[in-house]
Design a protein around this nucleic acid. Sequence first.
DNA 1: CAAGCATTTGAGCATATGCTCATGTAGTGA
DNA 2: TCACTACATGAGCATATGCTCAAATGCTTG
Lengths: 320, 320
Amino acid sequence: MNLARQTDADATPLDEAARAAWLYYVGGKTQDHIAKELGISRQRAQRLVSKAVAEGMIHFRLEHRLASCLELEATLKRKHGLELCRVAPSLGEGTDPTLGIATVTASEMERLLGSPDPIVMALGTGRTLRAAAEELPRMHCQHHKLVSLNGNISPDGTASFYDVIMRIADKVRAPHYPMPLPVVAASPKERDMFHALEPIQRTMKLARQANVTFVGVGQMDDSAPLLQDGFLSQAELLNMQQAGAIGEICGWIFDESGRYFNFGPNLRAAGVRVEPKQGNLAVAAAAGATKVNALRAAISGGIVNGLITDEPTARHILEK
Amino acid sequence: MNLARQTDADATPLDEAARAAWLYYVGGKTQDHIAKELGISRQRAQRLVSKAVAEGMIHFRLEHRLASCLELEATLKRKHGLELCRVAPSLGEGTDPTLGIATVTASEMERLLGSPDPIVMALGTGRTLRAAAEELPRMHCQHHKLVSLNGNISPDGTASFYDVIMRIADKVRAPHYPMPLPVVAASPKERDMFHALEPIQRTMKLARQANVTFVGVGQMDDSAPLLQDGFLSQAELLNMQQAGAIGEICGWIFDESGRYFNFGPNLRAAGVRVEPKQGNLAVAAAAGATKVNALRAAISGGIVNGLITDEPTARHILEK
DNA sequence: CAAGCATTTGAGCATATGCTCATGTAGTGA
DNA sequence: TCACTACATGAGCATATGCTCAAATGCTTG
């Protein structure tokens, strides 16, 4: 009953954590039991299990769609003419909804990447997509292509933490085309200089041909991600708010009808502008009270024809 | 903070279980918390969570390969010339290893079914594969084909519980070709009558062309599955044991060198005989001390060129 | 309508889990 | 070699989980 000898062979501490988590979740054993079996203290067993969870080694997947979520999905699809809609069960009003929609977004990505026909998947940036990347399983998708819609270079030259495409490409082993660009350039002139570069032109062309596009959605209230990440000054934000700015996708700002502005920071937006396209799928993944208006605008303006959100947000979007 | 209103919309009790499990595993909340949020008693919350687990709604997946398992896999591949080898971490000597190898088998099937090129996957029957079917996620595999290697009709005419192909086809939405046959016919003559039927001939032909084959392995000791399921009499079993029978795949009995017998019950075996084939993959999924000899024989005889097992079994197979 | 059966419920309790803190230990630099 | 830092360990305790049992509820059948 004692596996201590075998455990010795485990080189890394992560291995130990993985083994403990395996015994706990797959084997359904108590941590006490595991501790005895591995010849360690109970405390250590518990630390290993929670470490495995914290490191994201263990993934939970719910194989059951809730009736109430299905209903919201159907209503949203019908009322807004969406091609795709997924509603994650609420995690409770007090909890960050990112985790829930990340899980669901990952499962949709997995489904689409499972396609036998080669697809081009375009990806935005942001917290939500980044979290979804963590939830993706390992896959072998050599026949698909991943392409970035925008860069993730901050005004100070550092790369933002919320890089998505590299993480996803790493997980699913697909050829990938990142975009070495700022989200919003310093000036229209700088933007044009970037766009004049041949490799960037090629990547942008590929991104515009994407069959499937996943993007996050930024709100334009005082907590706007564009402000927080330093792409917009306080003054510019105020200006755009007064001009009726509601939301932003890949740095491109739009109003409550989902129409892009043709002035202000949009003249410097460096990434690909997500546009309504026939036959293709453009999915917005976002949740939270602050995002409701931006999501509603993006949907009604046809910037996206797919939506992944959570229950409370879905309800908010539906109630006028 | 109270979602009770929303919960009312949940029609089925399974929905409630799913929601509780979602909050517990994905949301990481305590059952106390969940109970308050859903407006139910803590007991009920705990019952719902364990129900969701029992119903197999929630799946655990470990995204980390243990060094010691990788090592066993490498050694087995090298020493026995295997194309594919996966070793699941042990669940402890006292525990049924089926769950562990089922999880790993499912993930290998998922990987293979994720292929963009159409494949034909042939499937045996048995407890292990049946358990693997439960662990498979939902997929859309219209471009692949699933085909059964043998039937699952008992001598008394009832279908055995361990039907695999229908379950898997249901999960992955692939065209499937079951085999309406007994595992072992009552007589060679009956077997030939079955085989004369045109639709059965077609299915068997397809099964023989399979790119990938997954089978369980039966031992031929006194606990032989063929005996337990009533396909073999006690006397026949004894006969075959004395003739040197070690194991069985799809009802076809072989000796310790992995050579099929050409007498006895094999003259009545109704399913497709798994054979060494160039370029194709035939994977045996089995674990446990009783299966070691059968596995070793099947591998060394080249009946299979792939193996999915657990750590203790892998060690046993390797030690001479 | 009522008795009988089966299933569901929550209270109470035993067990399992996770957190904190005091102590230990290994690695680092003077 | 000796402090010093940083991280690892296990004891003890607070909390969370899961099991048992008796009461309640609903459903079937005479």
